[in-house]
Computed example of a mutant assay.
Amino acid sequence: MNTQTEKLVAELRSRARALGFDAFGIAATDARPDLPEKLRHAIEQGWHAEMTWMAETEERRGDPRRLWEEARSAILLGVNYGPDTNPLHLLAEKSIGNISAYARNRDYHDIIKGKLKELAGLLARRGGADVKVFVDTAPLMEKPLAEVAGLGWQGKHSVLVSREWGSWLFLGAILTSAELPVDKPHLESCGSCTRCLDVCPTNAFPAPFRLDARRCLAYYSVEHKGPIPREFRRPMGNRIYGCDDCLAVCPWNKFASISREAKLRSRPELERPELADLVAIDDAGFRALFAGSPVKRIGHERFLRNVLIGIGNSESEILVPSVMARMADASALVRGAAVWALRRLDPEQASAVRERHLDGETDPAVRDEWSGMV
């Protein structure tokens, strides 16, 4: 490595810290020749569930050079978003809507992308190289690249784990045509610990280091567009967006509490929202409350679906009127979730209103909710 390149990398690291990045590392784009085969196996097993875009972009996703032929180096960066309190504590407060820690902030795509562009611009100006930035919106496998770049290792829950920040890192990447000196890969350091696997309420890990989205509550509450499958509704509890269980129990999180000024802070109104308030929100209110939040991307209907599942698990008959108010909702997805919630909270009232609602119900999925077992 020549002196000029050393100075450039040192400047990039320093600027990254100033921009608020907590982790920085460099990997060669061809450092993981095993990824195409691993990705192919995962897709063949169906672990991507209905996320068809993973299969559609498989060729480019498995190799950064397929995504951009000129890419020679990948700069991986991380931002700590560790919550101030343990997200698992909210699971016992059944009248509260539990939003995943990452979604209580501004949308991380917006937070990180501007910083990445500034850092990439510095690299382009100083090194004369071409650059491209990525924040989970292109077919780039950031986690295995971050492992090679020394930011941490992919834990048994498949999420990147850092010795400094635990399981709480937003990741972003800069691909560049420049040949940069690489960092030492991080060794897997989970040891014999299986806490993340053991805590999963739906057994979404067929084996350590493997995640089956078809059993993942984070997938169903965020990516899935239809009704929540019945077998996952009770385990969903009050998780109305995402699931932090496997992240929150990681022993390495104890180091993530070492905060910095740049640490992301959650919005207070998204820390402990009442289910009764959330189910009453109309579309305009939903857009206003979740402006700038990842939650906004799932839309009002799917959000209400999740909230009603949470209400059905609340064991609070006080919320029955809130459920009844959604029984005639314009969305079949919402009506179906409301039926399930009512049958859970007040079976007698559900029986009393069943025929009245069935008379005008044309959606087969909603009709099935009335006849299905709770």
Rank of each mutant, 00 (worst) to 15 (best):
L342N: 13
L319V: 02
S162N: 13
G360H: 04
H89K: 13
D277I: 09
N203E: 02
N203L: 10
E317G: 11
N238Y: 02
M327E: 02
H41R: 12
S371V: 01
N238F: 08
L319K: 00
W153N: 01
I228H: 03
Q154K: 05
R356W: 09
F303P: 03
V135H: 00
L319H: 04
A262P: 09
Y81A: 05
F209P: 00
K184L: 09
R265E: 11
P33L: 03
E69N: 11
K225W: 02
L342E: 09
D130A: 15
R367M: 01
G25K: 10
D359P: 01
R354W: 04
D107V: 01
R344Y: 12
L175G: 10
E142T: 00
P185V: 09
I318W: 01
E44H: 04
V161C: 02
T176V: 05
R195M: 02
A352C: 02
Y102E: 14
G155F: 06
E142K: 06
L197N: 00
D212Q: 04
V323S: 08
C190L: 08
A55G: 15
V159W: 10
Y108L: 03
V182H: 07
T362W: 00
D30V: 10
D346F: 03
A16D: 10
S100K: 00
V295F: 13
A42Q: 02
E261V: 11
I111Q: 14
P273Q: 03
A330I: 00
N105R: 13
I309C: 09
A341C: 12
E271Y: 03
D359H: 11
D244Q: 09
Q154C: 05
L180E: 06
C216F: 01
P364A: 13
E44F: 05
I96P: 09
A138M: 04
R15A: 15
P268A: 03
L264M: 14
K263E: 14
L342V: 12
T202P: 13
A365T: 15
P229D: 02
A27Y: 10
S73M: 14
R344V: 06
G152F: 02
S257W: 12
R195Q: 09
S14K: 15
S192M: 11
E261D: 14
H186I: 05
L116Q: 08
A101G: 03
L35Q: 15
R214I: 00
P364K: 13
K263H: 15
L175S: 03
S100L: 01
V9P: 01
E315Y: 12
P185F: 12
P347E: 13
I111M: 07
R260K: 05
R210W: 07
L76G: 11
L197E: 01
V199D: 08
Y220M: 11
D329S: 09
G46M: 07
F290V: 12
I298N: 05
E231N: 00
D198T: 12
R126L: 14
S162A: 05
T137H: 08
N2Q: 00
P139E: 04
G150K: 06
H300E: 09
G20N: 02
R234T: 14
G150C: 10
R214Q: 08
E44A: 10
G226M: 07
G242L: 02
G128M: 05
G360R: 07
I96F: 04
S177F: 14
C190V: 09
D282T: 01
A10Q: 14
E50R: 09
D136S: 12
